[in-house]
Amino acid sequence: MRDFSYLRADSVEAARNAAALPGAMLLAGGTTLVDLAKCGVAEPSAVIDISHIKGLDAIDVSAGRAVIGALAKMSHVADHAEIKGRFPAVSEALWQAASAQLRNMASIGGNLMQRTRCPYFRDPANFPACNKRAPGSGCSAIGGVTRGHAVLGTSEACIATYPGDLAIALVAFDAEVHLGERRLKVEDFFLAPGATAEREHDIRPGEVITAIEIPGSAAARRSTYLKVRDRQSYEFAAASAAVGLELEGDGRTIRDIRIALGGVATKPWRARAVEDALKGKTFDEATVRKASELTMEGAVDHGANHYKIELAPRVVARAILKLGETA
C-alpha cells in the first residue's frame, strides 16, 4: 500500500513548513489531487490539508482590484457580484469550467495548479514514457492520439495542453499570484515545457499560493470568456478566449484590448500580436477578423489537432465582436 501521512495545517506558516518536506503535497478541494493519486500520477508521501486555514477564502474587491484568497471556491468567485460586475470574463470562465459539484469543492489556488488532461500523462501503467511525469522518459503523445493537444508553446519534450479556464482570464488582465514573499504575473507563473516539461509552475518547495490579485481596468470591466467545446457542459475547451475591450470616447477606436487563449497552448497564452494589431484601430468586423488571424502565429500541429489552428482565430474574433455589440 502507498502509505502517506496526513497533516492539517492551521496557518499558512504551518502549511509552508510542511510543504517544504520532500514528497509533500498540499490538499485544498482535492478534485485534482485525489484524481491524480487514483491514476497513479501523484504519489505524495505527505498530504498537507490547507482547507481549514481561516481567512484564506476571502474575496475582496476594492481600490480598483480584486484579491481572491487561494481557498475561495470556484463557485463563490463565479457568483460574486463585484467579480461579475468588474471582471465578467473571470466569472464566465469559472462558470464554464468543470461541473457544479466540482466548482463547489474546488479552490482557486488548486485551480491554478491543475494538471494537463493529456491521456498519456494520466495512464502511467500503460504509457511509462512521459517527460512531464518522468523527465527524460520521452513523450508518448507525439505520434499518438493528439486531438486535444496543444499547437502553441509546444516543444519536442511535451505538447500537452494547459486545460484550465480561469487562468486564461487572469493572464488577459495581468493578474498576479501571491506566493508569500514572491509575487508573480500569472503569465510568468505558468511555464511552457521547453526541455523541462516537468516544471509547469514557477513555484518553489515550501511556497503556498495565498491569493491572486487582478488589477481592475476598463478592459476587464468590458470582458467576456468564450469557450468552444465538444459538448455543452462539463468539458475542457477545444479553444477558448478571454477578451477585454476598451474603446476611445468616440465609441469606435480601440484604446485597449486584452486577449488570451485557452485549450490550444501549453500554458495560458496571451495573444499580444492580435492585441497590437488592433490597438488604435477602428472597431469593425473586417479589422477584427483580419487581426484575429495572427492568433496562431507560430502554431505547430500534430495531425489530429490541426483543427485548433482553424478554430482559435474564429473564437477570438467572435469574442471580440461580441464585446463590440455590448455598449
Binding site: R231, S233, E235
Partner: peptide, 25 residues
C-alpha cells in the same frame, strides 16, 4: 473509442475522456 495506433490501445477509456452527453446537451 480512440485507438492509439502504435499500441492498439483505447486511450479514452474513462468517463472524463469518453464523451457522452450531459444534461445541457
Amino acid at each position: 473509442g480512440l485507438v492509439d495506433r502504435r499500441h492498439g490501445r483505447i486511450v479514452n477509456g474513462n468517463l472524463a475522456d469518453y464523451m457522452i452527453p450531459t444534461n445541457a446537451d
